[in-house]
Structure formats: C-alpha cells, structure tokens
Amino acid sequence: MSSLVKSRFIFVVPALVFLSLFVLIPIASIFTMSFYSWDLLRPPKFVGWNNFRLMLEDKWFWNSIWVSIKLLILTVPMTFFIPMALALALYRETRSSKILRAFFYWPYMMPAVAGTTMWKWLLSYDLGLLNHILKSCGLSPIGWLLKPAPALFSIALLRTWAMTGLLMMMFITGLQNISEEYHEAAKIDGANKWQIFWYVTFPLLRNTNLLVLTTAIAHVFRDFAGIYVLTGGGPGYSTMVTPLYIYNSAFTQFRIGYAYAMSVVFLLISFVIAMTTLRVRENR
C-alpha cells in the first residue's frame, strides 16, 4: 500500500477506473467487432479478415486517409501559431485581455452545427456574405467550396477558428506557469522582446507546445462534424476525411463491422503519427 502511495500510482487510480470502463473496454470491443459483419439489427456474423480484405480494395478509404493527412499538414501550423500569438498577446491579467479572451473562446463554445452553418453561409458561392462583399467591391467571387484546394483550405480555416479558444487557453495556462524571474533575468542580460521569446519563453513552453501540438493533431485528425456540414466530403471525395467516411459507413449504411475495421486501421495510423510527434519533440 505504501509503495502505491510512494510511487504516486494511487493518484492515477480513479482516472484509470473510468478510463478502463468507458474507453478501453469499448475500444477492445471495436477490435473484436471488426471481424464481424453487423448492421445493428441482425445478430453479428463472424467473417474473419474479410472486412480488412475489403478495406484493402476500397479506393475511397485510402483516398480518405490521404485527405486526412493533407488536412492535417494544412491545419496544424495554423492551429499552433495563431493561438500562440493570441496567448502571448493576452496572457497577462489585464482587464482588456480578460474580455478579449472570452471573444476568442466563443467559437469553441458554439455548438458545432451552428458555427459551421454560419461559415457555410459566409462562404457560399451564390449567397455568401463574403462573395457579396467581393462583388460589391467589383471583384469576382471566389468558389470557396467548389474546388478541391479552396475547399480544403476553407475547412482548415474553420478548424482553426473553432479550436483556437481551447488551444489559446492551453498556451495561457502554460505561460502563466512560467516564473516571471526568467524574464527578469533575461531582461537584465539585455535581451530584447523577441530574443526573450525565442531563447527563454519558447523553450520553457516545451511541455505546453507538446500539449497543444498533440491536441491539435488529434482534434484535426478525428473530427468530422464541421466537414459533414460544410462540404459533406465534396467536391466528390476531395474533402472526405476518414472519420466522415467511417461515419457514413457506420450510420448511413449501417456496415458496423466494416466501419470498425476502418476505425482500427485509422487508430493505428493516428497512433503512429502521435508517437512520431512526441518522439521528435521530446528528443530535442
């Protein structure tokens, strides 16, 4: 018992109970069910590796993984640097920064469907406010959601918009955890603001950076609600990310076993990406 306390394992136990019950057991059953064919109505039928075999031949599944990775590469830098810049501007406890934080957190509070629908209206080719403004300025309208590249960019923009609140608050928490003494010391040594940031603050934020980066990757990689509303995966399959493809298979076609097989593969890929990020960052 005392070793449980001494090694501080005891502190982890409550979380571990909930983790096992509501995350690990469901995950285990996803692995199991990926070997079945099931529509949630008839009893599941064991099909061996068949779901995985189908997946190998499913061009749209592999396409969706490629789309997910493209989106990840496009979105993560934005979701890292913009919240960081905002946090640096707002981490001090002044009246104005307290109020401004609430505004930047607002999009994160909005229900996903409402927020995305607003974007959809703003970006709509024919009826959108943005194109309307462009047109009244004598410019030609932009097909934000009509071509693969701008559509992907619009989604990246929307993800950044929606997630900034969360990530900015993470940065602020991290920044406030840094002792002011470091800055004072650097100031005495004659460093300017940028130097202080790059040589003092940024390295001290190492754990926060890792937190934000990993959270951003995970959220961008697994979420699909915004895409579901904004483009529905279109044009064609060009914004069809894997979670959306899985969701469609599971809950419009009710191919639960197949969807789980895809989930298993997708989870493994996610895991590889996460581990790579952690390793690269932690080794520095």
Partner: peptide
Amino acid sequence: MVPAEWISNQDPNMAFTGGL
C-alpha cells in the same frame, strides 16, 4: 442548375427562395 448545390451541398431553398 446551381453548381454549388451539387458540389458543396448548398441548401437549394436558399437560391430558390432568394430568387436566384
């Protein structure tokens, strides 16, 4: 027909009720 409706799933009621 309205390309945005079939490419990016724009709500058809918008263009129709909006008079486009």
